[in-house]
Design a protein around this nucleic acid. Structure first.
Lengths: 254, 254
DNA sequence: CGATTCATTGACCGGGATCAAGAACCGTGG
DNA sequence: CCACGGTTCTTGATCCCGGTCAATGAATCG
């Protein structure tokens, strides 16, 4: 069975059976269970391990002096949290769960070995880093140039697209176990105003929320409302490759 | 004579004389002169070359549908613009000059060869990517959680620190040839409000502006006013790495 | 069950946007 | 040398989006 990590990396590259086994093995080695709102790695720490989210939901965040929190990225199943940790000797931000999650730990040494021996795998991780950077840049635009309505819509739509690319969307439904406070910390708005924007999105029949299950009723309408452009996720790359089967995997994803 | 690129990479690693020559050669191969406000790479393009800013000032930016522009990062002399271009097949943002600049072009093939053959150099470039990511994350915090005053102060202080780390600061003076519109596009504020914040910073004797020459009159005061924390630039940590094998970690990565 | 977190809604306020009008600063050509 | 048209900078007046404060439900859980 494919691990979430392999599923994720398959968005970027194709792998030999041997590569696939190596990637899957990374996730089965050591697994830790976290509750909601627990830290996986803290700012300033240096961990000997790197981490990969297998299930649940985590985020990159940072606390400011005034006590407020800024969420800089959501980490969905398959996302490596800190594949760079064995280069830097201290994290400049924290990683924590938002919902109960299962996280795989891989020793930095083993990661190093794999990246040394397997250029094909190393390349996929490099790609992942570039996608992360694209997401960060898009969030800067989001906060700098979009109003609250687009900001909330954008965040929801991006999560939707990433979940769908990862293949965990049944119809338009997906599990997104965040509070409105979390969304506020991610968008730079107040919880009160996030609530108002969600209300508006619901009233316009773009989304529906039932507990932690979100439904995108009108993906196209939501995309337009949020001013979303998909290019930065580089999900379409596989489609353009002339001799690749990847196109089949990703068909209909965008 | 050390090229700006070597100066920049020396922030992260130490190099053998041979490494130094290889890095310097990158910058002397092909140099292009750009005027102010010209594009070096456009969104959607795939260039065979990667680019390095040697003098002047450039930025990463993106235009939105409504015509507004968001500057996501400033590129000062020594900064590689797109060392990842030979992996991705399309840029998800543009890079353009703000002031007349000299830019070095290096073929992707040569870059790849260098990163393959020289782990020590590959490591420095990897570090550079991580620093870029840190800057992006800090900008998200900046826009999400700080008020206009801190935002403008923060941006100025970061440029000051990066220029100083690069070694082009005479006393507290440095050349920063941007318009207030550029600063507005970078902070997500309006030019009018940027002007008001600059006025305030001047009145508090934190900075002085004479044409394109900026002076930080009170670095400590500016840092405090902007809520700046330096850790994310990793300026002090990189060199401490005692492990001479560190560079080899990246072998086979590209 | 209370107790605690989370969602929702209303009333009011303020920071920054918007609009507008000069002023200072160019590079250009006469 | 000045006259000029175009940026860029500066400042004031007004408005509105989103923050703040507060109160009430709703949902979850020991």
């Amino acid at each position: 069975m494919d691990s979430p990590l392999l599923k994720k990396l398959l968005q970027f590259s194709e792998f030999s059976d041997e590569d696939r086994d190596l990637i899957n093995d990374l996730c089965t080695d050591r697994q830790s269970h976290y509750g909601a709102r627990e830290d996986i790695v803290r700012e300033g720490e240096h961990s000997a391990d790197i981490h990969i989210v297998l299930s649940g939901l985590a985020c990159r965040y940072k606390h400011l002096q005034d006590g407020s929190r800024q969420i800089m990225a959501f980490l969905v199943p398959g996302d490596p949290c800190d594949s760079e940790i064995f280069i830097l000797d201290a994290m400049d931000h924290s990683i924590g769960t938002l919902a109960p999650s299962i996280v795989a730990s891989v020793s930095g040494a083993r990661m190093k070995e794999l990246l040394l021996g397997r250029a094909s795998i190393a390349l996929a991780f490099w790609w992942n880093t570039l996608q992360d950077e694209g997401v960060l840049r898009e969030r800067i635009i989001d906060e700098g140039r979009r109003d609250a309505y687009s900001r909330v819509g954008f965040l929801i739509y991006e999560i939707f697209i990433r979940m769908r690319a990862f293949g965990v969307i049944d119809e338009q439904k997906f599990d997104f176990p965040v509070t409105q406070v979390d969304l506020a910390d991610a968008t730079g708005l107040t919880p009160v105003h996030v609530n108002r924007m969600l209300k508006q999105l619901r009233e316009e029949n773009l989304i529906a929320i039932d507990g932690k299950t979100w439904t995108i009723l009108d993906p196209d309408g939501l995309r337009k409302a949020s001013g979303y452009e998909a290019s930065y996720l580089h999900l379409d790359r596989a489609k353009r490759e002339p001799d690749s089967n990847a196109g089949k995997r990703l068909q209909g994803l965008i």
